[in-house]
Simulated scan of single mutants.
Amino acid sequence: MSTLRYHLAVLQEHHKITSLDEDGHLRFYENSGTYTAAQQRVLKHLRNTTTREILIGILEHPGASRQEVADTVGISGPAVTWHMKKLTGDRIIRQERDGRAVRYRISEDAAVDLAAGIREAEDRRVLSHT
């Protein structure tokens, strides 16, 4: 572990990688301008299987309610709320009130990054299974 930390520090010192420290997790990204801060936030959420399924579900069904998301993904309503709090905090999801219900949509700023990130994640998954 100390060798890994050393090499990561050297890569950061030479500006080869950048890091994103959020929620007690330190993530590293190539520092060639490949990923903007917004793209890094999207990629962070796509690493979680449940969050990725939620995002795909909302892309396929914009305006889904909490219960619709829960039914699609197969998780509880409170779990949806927990994930949505993280996603709205990173400005990936926006909430709209529809009477008593809350509807979820992908924010316009994150839509392009999200679609590209999902394709990249699926490509990696396909390549790892071959």
Rank of each mutant, 00 (worst) to 15 (best):
V73P: 02
E120T: 04
H14W: 08
R41C: 01
R103L: 15
R124S: 00
V42G: 06
A38F: 06
R91H: 13
P62L: 07
R52H: 11
D98N: 15
G99E: 12
R91P: 01
H25G: 02
Q40I: 03
W82L: 04
A70K: 11
A64Y: 15
G57E: 11
E22Q: 14
I17F: 05
T81D: 08
R66A: 11
R91Y: 10
I58C: 15
I58K: 15
R94P: 03
T81G: 06
R27Y: 08
D109E: 15
G74A: 02
E108N: 13
Y35M: 05
Q95A: 15
L11W: 11
V80R: 11
Y6S: 09
P78S: 04
S2L: 06
E120G: 00
T81N: 06
E60F: 10
G33Q: 08
E68K: 09
H7G: 00
A115F: 00
H45Y: 14
A38E: 11
E108C: 01
G63H: 13
H15A: 10
G74I: 03
K86R: 15
S76M: 06
E68N: 09
G74P: 14
R100I: 14
G77H: 04
D109M: 08
G99D: 12
L4D: 09
R91I: 02
M84F: 02
T34E: 02
R124A: 01
T36C: 02
R91T: 10
T36E: 01
R66V: 09
R105T: 01
L4R: 08
A64P: 15
N48W: 01
T34V: 03
R66K: 12
G89I: 05
R119H: 07
D23N: 13
S107Q: 07
A38C: 04
Q67T: 10
A110E: 04
Y35N: 10
I58T: 15
G89Q: 04
V73W: 01
E120F: 00
E122K: 03
L11H: 07
L4A: 12
T34M: 02
N48K: 14
E108W: 03
G24T: 07
V69K: 02
D113Q: 00
T34K: 05
G33R: 05
D113M: 00
A111H: 08
T18P: 00
H14G: 04
T130V: 13
V73A: 00
R119M: 06
L8D: 03
T81Q: 05
R5T: 14
E122H: 04
S65N: 12
L46Y: 05
M1A: 09
